[in-house]
Computed example of a mutant assay.
Amino acid sequence: MEREDIKRIFEAYFEKYKKTEGDRTAWSAVWLETTGVGTLELNMTKCPKGTTFKIFVNKKKEAQVLGWDAYFAAIGEVAAGYPGLYDEERIFSEMESVL
């Protein structure tokens, strides 16, 4: 899947499902993917410092990065470290289907 499609889908998902972090300056949306390999949680947070992504594998934080370029680099490392866990075609197709 193209990066622009991933951005468009994740941004739309964020807008539909975002929840405030409490003080209304930070908003987050979470996608949880469970496979036979484990669980993957993608957390997008928007706050005054920018768009932050937190990536968890089996409830352990693997990465926290700022911006889309850093997200793509981090998710590539996570995918390499956990083969079969991150299937962007499936994840973002499913994410788009709930919009």
Rank of each mutant, 00 (worst) to 15 (best):
Ile55Asn: 04
Ala73Gly: 05
Ile55Asp: 00
Arg90Leu: 14
Arg90Ser: 11
Lys61Phe: 05
Glu88Ser: 13
Tyr82Thr: 11
Tyr86Phe: 15
Ser97Val: 08
Trp68Gly: 06
Glu88Tyr: 06
Lys61Met: 15
Glu89Ile: 10
Leu66Gln: 10
Gly81Asn: 13
Gly76Glu: 07
Ala70Phe: 06
Ala80Trp: 10
Gly81Lys: 14
Lys60Val: 12
Ile91Gln: 09
Lys54Gly: 14
Glu94Tyr: 10
Gly84Arg: 03
Val65Thr: 01
Lys59Ala: 09
Ala70Arg: 10
Glu96Gln: 14
Ala74Leu: 06
Lys59Val: 09
Phe72Thr: 09
Val78Cys: 02
Ile91Val: 15
Phe92Gly: 00
Gly76Trp: 09
Ala80Cys: 09
Leu99Gln: 04
Ala79Glu: 15
Asp87Arg: 13
Gly67Ile: 01
Pro83Lys: 11
Ala79Gln: 14
Glu94Ser: 13
Asp69Cys: 09
Trp68Leu: 08
Tyr71Trp: 10
Lys60Ile: 11
Lys59Pro: 01
Asn58Ala: 07
Leu99Thr: 02
Met95Trp: 00
Asp69Phe: 08
Tyr71Ser: 00
Val65Pro: 02
Glu77Met: 13
Asp87Glu: 11
Val57Asn: 01
Gly84Pro: 01
Ala74Phe: 00
Leu66Met: 13
Leu85His: 00
Ile91Arg: 03
Gly76Ala: 07
Asp69Pro: 07
Val57Gln: 02
Glu88Leu: 08
Ser97Phe: 08
Ala80Gly: 10
Ile75Asn: 10
Asn58Tyr: 01
Asp87Trp: 04
Ile75His: 09
Gly84Ser: 04
Glu88Ile: 09
